[in-house]
Design a protein around this nucleic acid. Structure first.
Lengths: 242, 242
DNA sequence: GACATTTAAAAGTCTGACATTTAAATATCT
DNA sequence: AGATATTTAAATGTCAGACTTTTAAATGTC
């Protein structure tokens, strides 16, 4: 682990990168303890605050965790699926909100990816996944449900569908696509009729998953995509007219 | 933007979270300048190094950028697709390498997602995307190509396929799935015969994309997945025997 | 052997200072 | 007057050293 004293980049950036590289190339392995801040500042010939800034950068990416007290220090963190999932969701959400991504573009991506999961989910879903889907469908039919709660339930339904594929990598990759749509969906007001249409399609999809019929599930998702996009188009058109 | 003085969490974590929340909820908008470090430390009643650690955490996630000099400071950063893409790739790569994800699991996820892009790509790909695919196929046939270079070319081919869908959200979401496979693929040694089989399938896929035949491309990807998994299984079996 | 106490190591925080960068204000020259 | 050089001030980047808090391990006591 070395830094280039002639580089114009900030020291804390260089140090963070050096440690990150060491982790990526396997020089530092999971749960291994990094040298203490004092030792690092000595090694890189910088002050402790500078080392600390570098470590905070890594901590922000869940690459390390720190522990206080005797035998504490910074440890290489095993990046868990949960951590990666959470990162993926916030990054995707911000990406969409900051780049004026159209509803259609995001929607297309989401459903294209979900359709990829459907056949696997139809084959492998556990009873639990199916139960979650049914429970969310039931919730969506409840009167007095707010639009925000309806959208949240929608996301939960789709998440169960994706998780049904029993492939954690797939679940992780889909996290952003599914959850980042929620803020966009929240901009829509759902009439009772819209909700019924959506819930009906959800039922169709759940039935297909239950029957192990992947292609039927794909068709259901296809129709749900059309329905969602039509709905959004109507809402935006009405809003533009006003 | 407030922090809870009774919380047990580190101050820099709390401050970073407070600013992050302000960005997510739109209280701070893109390119807006945050208060100076001195003002922030005054506002939160903490020292400047503590504020700086918080800012470094945010900078690590590309949520802010800092600029030195007069009229410098920290600015809310527009999260670009490039930044998000890079983050996604490193996170996915680390996730796979640190969690002993099986080759099959990662492979399944990758090809399932790619098949989702194929029909869109067949419809929308530009001449440029197609040219890239052809060029990579040509490169893969060159004698004397190292295994690592072969894998890199493979990734470039698939990236062009995905980008052909002309949906930046899709490209971003696929980044991790496609690129994170590279280290896993690099563990395989490709015989001349293996390479020919893969390159042949690539040609089949490119032909289908060129013809605008989405389902043929999906079939090609299906076969490529089988081929890849078979190949990997053979390599691992041979290695286990030794 | 079980429990309480001490101790030391490490991260977390603070204060205050200095260095460096950079844009804007000011001064100077043509 | 306008262009160019200089100064200035504000902001981040860096440093040094001290103090606080947490925590596990060593030590001591019953």
């Amino acid at each position: 682990m070395k830094i280039d004293p002639n580089s114009s980049a900030d020291l804390s950036v260089q140090i963070a990168q050096a440690i990150k590289d060491a982790i990526i190339c396997g020089e530092l392995i999971v749960d291994e303890r990094l040298p203490s801040e004092a030792e690092l500042s000595d090694h890189f010939q910088v002050s402790r605050p500078t080392v600390r800034e570098a470590l905070k950068r890594l901590a922000a990416q869940s690459l390390i965790r720190t522990q206080r007290g005797a035998s504490g220090g910074a440890f290489v963190n095993r990046l868990s699926f949960e951590d990666a999932y959470a990162q993926q969701v916030t990054t995707s959400t911000l990406l969409l909100s900051m780049n004026a991504v159209s509803f259609d573009t995001a929607c297309e991506a989401r459903y294209a990816l979900e359709r990829a999961c459907a056949p696997l989910s139809a084959q492998r879903r556990s009873a639990d996944h199916l139960a979650t889907m049914r429970a969310e469908i039931f919730r969506q039919g409840q009167p007095g449900l707010t639009d925000v709660a309806f959208c949240a339930s929608d996301v939960a339904f789709h998440r169960a569908l994706v998780d049904g594929a029993c492939n954690p990598v797939l679940s992780y990759q889909l996290a952003g696509a599914v959850e980042a749509m929620q803020p966009l969906m929240n901009m829509i007001t759902f009439s009772a009729r819209d909700r019924a249409a959506i819930t009906g399609l959800h039922t169709r999809i759940a039935d297909a998953i239950e029957a192990g019929d992947g292609s039927a599930a794909v068709c259901g998702l296809q129709d749900l995509e059309s329905e969602t996009r039509k709905l959004a188009a109507d809402v935006f058109a009405a809003r533009a007219k006003r």
